[in-house]
Write a protein that binds this DNA or RNA. Structure first.
Lengths: 220, 220
DNA sequence: TAGTGTGAATTTCTTCACAGCG
DNA sequence: CGCTGTGAAGAAATTCACACTA
């Protein structure tokens, strides 16, 4: 009776655990404790155990977790038994960098096509990735069986790209454009906004330098 | 008596509100309600009001928020009264894409230098960004007054880059390398891992296609 | 005995709902 | 009257602490 709903916070950490497990397996390690795994994943041991318990009971009391077994279960949970073809909308600096990025293919996310409005790019092939005009998006998604759409267009074009992906049946989107997208609830959407990340860091810089200038907080 | 500790969850949303406010100001809008702002930022109105209340009382009951005033307060909270110079360690696909990215300079985060071990790159200047050898990191950080370090090296070199940045006095890091970094508590660290993002999407794809295959969950 | 798995306590975040002000 | 600002309720995530077992 595996009552499934794995918490989102846990889901977001599973890929990190998986990466650590792959590294450990590569080093020939056969067993890890929650403590060791926590150290390597940058979290605490209680969280590791709680997270892993959502996948089932794959540990052995007094011993730890079998690396190979846990890795397999984790891969399965993350859907990595499949390969998920990725298509990229917008072939500017970021889109191109992603297309060239080897890590994606290696980890089961081959970039199979890209789209751009630039006539100089359309029809060309960059690092094995063919660049199409956005008009062909629906057809190319169908042909390639693309599962994930990456949006790397300018902000002004991002919602339209998202709409096209959704209309073409893509149910997972990764948005790099600096704008909020609206998609139907059955579509998974994640956003990576580089300027937002820098501004969050800026907030902390401002806080601490302000604190330094003005003196420490009052002790309670 | 402004008891400051703004919740992290709120801090992460402030940049999104700011972007919306800048857009609104550009459109000549002078006032927004929490409802409108919520719609544009992709959250709900109660959250907007609670978030903004942490900055102070900058709204007018019955009317809404003054766009210009709120924008100013938000910029101040995010430390955007300063410009924060950025340096990039690792000048591969991602590092280069970041260096070329116009949005950073425009929004107060000029990329002032990059580092790479590749002898063909060292000494060159790409899009106005000089590329140095990592040995010069401390000196260049001091000269440029860099406030934020971006790590775009291979995973194996990332911790060393982080250590060098920290030793040079950089107190904010943005890590793109697929590995967990350890830094002292006074250093702010954020991580962007593209493969992790794809794997999270993969999880949801696996869930929903599994659900579709196996039928709906039991009600109750 | 060492370390998992998990209820319970705690903290953090979100949402509700409404008093109060312009 | 309309909308903010906020206590209070609720939900989610984290952490504690320990019974249990390989």
């Amino acid at each position: 009776m595996t009552a499934r709903p794995i918490p989102e916070a846990t889901v977001a950490r599973l890929p990190v655990y998986l990466r650590v497990l792959v590294d450990l397996a590569g080093d020939g390690v056969e067993t890890v404790s929650s403590e060791e795994l926590a150290e390597l994943a940058g979290v605490n041991a209680a969280k590791v155990r709680k997270d892993l318990s959502h996948l089932g009971s794959y540990g052995t009391r007094g011993v730890g977790y079998d690396v190979a077994r846990l890795r397999l279960q984790m891969s399965r949970a993350l859907g990595l038994v499949h390969t998920w073809p990725v298509v990229i909308a917008g072939f500017g600096n970021i889109g191109r960098a992603l297309a060239k990025h080897e890590g994606f293919r290696e980890r089961g996310f081959p970039v199979v096509a890209a789209f751009d409005v630039d006539p100089d790019l359309v029809g060309s092939t960059v690092e094995g990735v063919p660049v199409h005009h956005p008009d062909e998006l629906t057809a190319v998604v169908a042909e390639t069986g693309a599962a994930i759409g990456v949006i790397a267009t300018p902000a002004a074009a991002a919602q339209q790209a998202a709409d096209q992906f959704v209309a073409a049946g893509v149910r997972a989107l990764l948005n790099f454009a600096p704008t909020v997208l609206t998609v139907p609830p059955e579509v998974s959407l994640r956003a990576v906004d580089l300027v937002v990340e820098l501004q969050i860091l800026g907030f902390h810089l401002a806080q601490t330098s302000e604190g330094a200038r003005r003196g420490r907080r009052s002790a309670s």
